[in-house]
Each structure stands twice: as structure tokens, then as C-alpha cells.
């Protein structure tokens, strides 16, 4: 994809963050331009989910240094709901169950809070219903899911699909997908990838966290980053993902330790 000269959507520089006094992010730097899809891979516990939650503003994580600029704004100064309303979306690795709140109400309130922020009129129940039917088709979800409580009793794969449905409704500027492909059967994987590809356009950006090269057969990344121990240790094109699949992470980690030792 041609991205020369496009607008920078997200710029992260030397970001460090800790949780309960334990440093987790140790100098993350990354830049994503409009129209780009980036992938982050890396071993368990390397800090991928932490990075995504710090971007979204989870209150348990304390940013100790560095900066994050989102569309020219200092993202770190914004409340989580402001970030969301400005177009930051996080598809969670482990979506929560919200008993007693219907999926439809949740989606409508979320959608209208974004509309309001954009200075647009809020949609009433009827207009919203039309919109949602259309988006349900994108993720091939049955409308029965709308009347159920948010994620309650959903299977693992259904929860992930529900995340994509939310993304499709909210049409974010920056979508962060944290292992949305984990636990999906092959058909669901295609549906999710298709949802992502339908949303991708020259104006927005995607950050896809995954362990599996196979997702990247469907969602073609412009850049692939490898995270270890709280920072990006190497970046490359989609071929890097293939190489990782074949060789694992050890060779990179060894190279990294050697480098530090010098």
C-alpha cells in the first residue's frame, strides 16, 4: 500500500509503563500512518496486551515515560472514554461479560457517544436497528445475540466476533486487535479477517497483535514488529512473520541478549 506522505495516525516514542510498581513496557517506539496495517508478534508475557491497554488508557497501568501522539493529540492526557470517542478502539484479548446489559443497548450507547463527539445527531432505536442489521452481516452474526447480555455465556469465538461487530459499528480511526484470531475456527477466522479488511481504508490504521502467521495470510500487514521484554526488538515486512513461524523467537532473543551484553 502506498503510504508515502500520508498522515501519521499514531506515533509512540520511548514509552515506558508499569503496573503495581513492576515495569512492563521498557521503551516502545512505533509509528503508524493512515492506510497502514501493522502486526505485533512476540512471546507470551512480552507486553503486547499491556501496550494495547496503555494506548486505550486502562487505569491500572501507569505511564512512566515517553509520549504517544494520536492524530496530533497527546493521547496520554485523554481519559479512556475520550480516546474511544476520538476513534481509538481495542478489541480485547479477553472480552468481559457484562450481565444485565443487553448487547443492543451497549452498542447503541457506545455508538451514540461516538456520534455525539463527532457533532452528529444520535440515532434513535429504529435507525440504529437498520445500521446494526447491516453490520451483523459483515460478521455473520445472528441477531439473537443482540438481545443477550454483553458476552454473557458467549463462546470464546462468539466473544471475538462480538468485538469485531463493535468495531464495525464504531468505525475507529485506530483499531487495535489483541489476539482476535486466537481460539477461532477457520471459518470464523475468515469472517473476522474479512471484517477487518472491510473496515480498512486509506484514512484509518490497524494494529494487529497475533501469535499466528496464518491470520496474516488474510490481513496483509505493511509492517511486522517483534516485541520482547517490553519493547520492539525488530521490525520487518510480512516475510518476517513467515520466518518467525519457521524459526521461532529464540534466534532473535539470543541476538538481542548478545547485543545488550556488548
Amino acid at each position: 500500500m502506498m503510504t508515502e506522505g500520508s498522515e501519521v495516525i499514531l506515533s509512540v516514542r520511548d514509552l515506558t509503563a508499569e503496573v503495581d510498581g513492576t515495569p512492563i513496557l521498557k521503551g516502545m517506539s512505533l509509528e503508524i500512518k493512515a492506510g497502514e496495517i501493522h502486526a505485533i508478534m512476540g512471546p507470551n508475557g512480552s507486553g503486547k496486551s499491556t501496550f494495547s491497554k496503555v494506548l486505550a488508557g486502562h487505569p491500572a497501568y501507569e505511564v512512566t515515560g515517553g509520549e504517544v501522539i494520536f492524530q496530533g493529540q497527546n493521547l496520554l492526557e485523554m481519559e479512556p472514554e475520550e480516546r474511544a470517542r476520538s476513534g481509538v478502539f481495542l478489541a480485547f484479548q479477553y472480552p468481559l461479560e457484562i450481565p444485565g446489559v443487553s448487547n443492543l443497548d451497549f452498542l447503541r450507547v457506545a455508538y451514540n457517544s461516538r456520534r455525539k463527539h463527532q457533532g452528529l445527531e444520535e440515532l434513535d432505536a429504529f435507525d440504529f436497528d437498520e445500521l446494526i442489521q447491516e453490520k451483523l452481516d459483515v460478521v455473520k452474526m445472528d441477531s439473537a445475540f443482540l438481545s443477550r447480555s454483553v458476552n454473557e455465556g458467549f463462546s470464546g469465538g462468539e466473544k471475538k466476533r462480538n468485538e469485531i461487530l463493535q468495531m464495525a459499528i464504531l468505525e475507529p480511526k485506530l483499531a487495535i486487535l489483541d489476539e482476535t484470531d486466537s481460539g477461532l475456527d477457520i471459518d470464523a477466522l475468515k469472517i473476522v479477517a474479512n471484517g477487518v479488511n472491510q473496515l480498512a481504508n486509506p484514512e484509518n490504521a490497524m494494529l494487529v497483535i497475533t501469535h499466528y502467521q496464518r491470520l496474516l495470510n488474510y490481513i496483509i500487514p505493511d509492517r511486522v514488529h517483534v516485541m520482547a521484554n517490553g519493547r520492539i526488538i525488530t521490525s520487518g515486512t510480512k516475510e518476517l512473520a513467515l520466518e518467525l513461524e519457521a524459526r521461532g523467537y529464540d534466534w532473535l532473543l539470543e541476538a538481542e541478549t548478545a547485543e545488550v551484553a556488548v
Binding site: 487505569p59 472514554e81 480516546r83 480485547f92 472480552p95 457484562i98 450481565p99 444485565g100 457506545a110 464504531l170
Partner: peptide, 26 residues
């Protein structure tokens, strides 16, 4: 808890609305 509320705020819903939605449902 914090994580439920974060799920709402991440979708642009304020904490007050989140609590009242959950309580009404409950």
C-alpha cells in the same frame, strides 16, 4: 470492578452511564 468499567469507557461510555446501565440491568 475496574475491568468492567474499562470495557465501557473503552467503547466511549462514561463511568456514570456504565454503572447505571449495570445497576438497572441487575
Amino acid at each position: 470492578g475496574e475491568d468492567q468499567l474499562f470495557y465501557f469507557t473503552q467503547r466511549g461510555i462514561s463511568q456514570e452511564d456504565a454503572v447505571s446501565m449495570m445497576i438497572s440491568g441487575f
